[in-house]
Design a protein around this nucleic acid. Sequence first.
DNA 1: CTGAAAGCGCTTACAG
DNA 2: CTGAAAGCGCTTACAG
Lengths: 351, 351
Amino acid sequence: MTPNASPPGRVTLSDVAKASGLSRATVSLVLRGSPLVHADTRARVEAELKRQGYVYHRGAANLRGRTSTAVALVINDLSNPFFAEFAAGVDEALATAGFVTLLGSTGESVERQQAVLASLLEHDPAGIILSPAEGSDGARLRALVGDRTPVLVFNRQLHDGTTEAGWDFLALDNQRGARLATEYLLDLGHRRIAFFGGHRDSSSCRQRREGYREAFAAAGITPEPQWLVECAPTRLEAAGQTGALFVRDPAPTAAVCYNDAVALGLMAGLSARGRRAGHDFAVIGFDDIPEASVSSPPLTTIAAAPRERGRQAAELILQRLRDPTQPPISTVAPVHLVLRDSDMPLQRSAA
Amino acid sequence: MTPNASPPGRVTLSDVAKASGLSRATVSLVLRGSPLVHADTRARVEAELKRQGYVYHRGAANLRGRTSTAVALVINDLSNPFFAEFAAGVDEALATAGFVTLLGSTGESVERQQAVLASLLEHDPAGIILSPAEGSDGARLRALVGDRTPVLVFNRQLHDGTTEAGWDFLALDNQRGARLATEYLLDLGHRRIAFFGGHRDSSSCRQRREGYREAFAAAGITPEPQWLVECAPTRLEAAGQTGALFVRDPAPTAAVCYNDAVALGLMAGLSARGRRAGHDFAVIGFDDIPEASVSSPPLTTIAAAPRERGRQAAELILQRLRDPTQPPISTVAPVHLVLRDSDMPLQRSAA
DNA sequence: CTGAAAGCGCTTACAG
DNA sequence: CTGAAAGCGCTTACAG
């Protein structure tokens, strides 16, 4: 309020204590709502707190109490809407619990991930939510993080196995998602269904392929090996690989895609060949990114509710902070089919 | 490495000092790369640091030195791709400078904004990057933040004026962007051009409308008042308001939209009326969100390069930390037209 | 080139 | 119900 040239200097507990003629201990008790303090004293202190514009210094409190009210969130990249939603969910739930989110991005680089974690660790997070960069080495991560800081691994399994390493794990039900998509297409009458996109060596791709196989097995059908086409999980790569679907006759009439980016790329690839998803070829994605609902046609897909996953991840790490001794838990988050317009029954494609 | 049941307990400077037969002061000097320390001593300390798995406690250092290596980033919502990109840029630049990002989301609520700021302030950020919630009151914010913590306001002006309040300001060149879009449509032969979407009382909307007027003025044309149609800046609202464009004859043949969300909604609204953007009506957006490049048709728009803006915001706040006394600076970030397929010359729409 | 002492802003036993 | 003292993990003068 007063126009000061020099920065005012922080108001501390001591200042407030002095001005109210009390000890710092008493003011501290007021701050944390202790019932030990007399109501009059409390009122007096609170007035003084307000008057001086006191701001609690959580860092000092944490140092003294050897606690931390921060949780580090390490993700690939916020420009991926899936992770942006996830981060929003994490931040929301952490804020509600009185924690602050320390953000770090790896850009899918294992080296940057080490650097980012090292830096975040210096800020003494109570726990870490880590969506590992592709190719992350569990042992190396563990050597860096140590065993003082609990970690929740999200989405991707670490190479040497997460659960065994004693870290919690939250995964999407990849297998069930792909099974749901495949079953739905089978119900629609399709028999020649491709699994399109993704890399065989990624754990999520393996799991989704497994769900695809499962649905075929349940239907008593054996999928042809050439219906499995690999490609990098990007729109561009997928568009470029579209041709691989039609090299042999009879070609597939439908595809379960590794993710939405791939599905969107496939739809573009189909357009380029004079075909249209939902009209003469059925396409199902995975993720339900925001674009899926506004593509043309809107994409039928498997939704993973990333924001809800974020909240769940935050809850899991908070729970771990409350009870550090309970054995590591591995959670599989549900997933569901969202029907839009990119699929259709077999008849139409035969026409 | 050793399977401990009980948590290991933090390794401190004292531990390392003791083990190397030195004082804490010396170890501290090693940590910060002081040239005062003998090379041999340094080597000895560094080996011990590694051996014990020492992790620097930046919070303790900051407390002692009365410094902070955190910057708070308060935004509306990460699920908005514009802000997600912005946040990614901020985080990237802060990380490079050795700072950590404290994340907070307001969800466009002025009350939550107060709460989030209060909470972040307790974590003692060196500075704050604030993209204010709509309707934010500058005086109220300033009362909360005080004048110890520098603030960079991004994107939206505060109600009582930012610059006067002594805070730095980074804005998009809204006016120039809208002028570029309008001029381009005029060049294409359009004369009846709507300004579609946004709320009159938001400063960015006012500025964009001003750019629109400017282009008309330069062309010596007076726009009709009914070409200004308001609506909330969401896809859904925009789709619903599409009809307002065609209530009077002759109707506009083109629209400059408040933002991409509105433009996408308008394109949907046009489709519903049997029209198609880029074919018989010209549409230009603002923001260049990722969806703009994959909509159907891809959207011609004004790009604000949000990631680059994020980096810029981080640079500005870091600069302010270096020199707290320099007068508040107000920066206007450039903006440019990205041509895609949702516009077209007038002739085609006349056909 | 290295060490002893004080202190950043808090909280936690321990007295009274 | 309130206060005096010690200490969280660091850094900063000040000596030597």
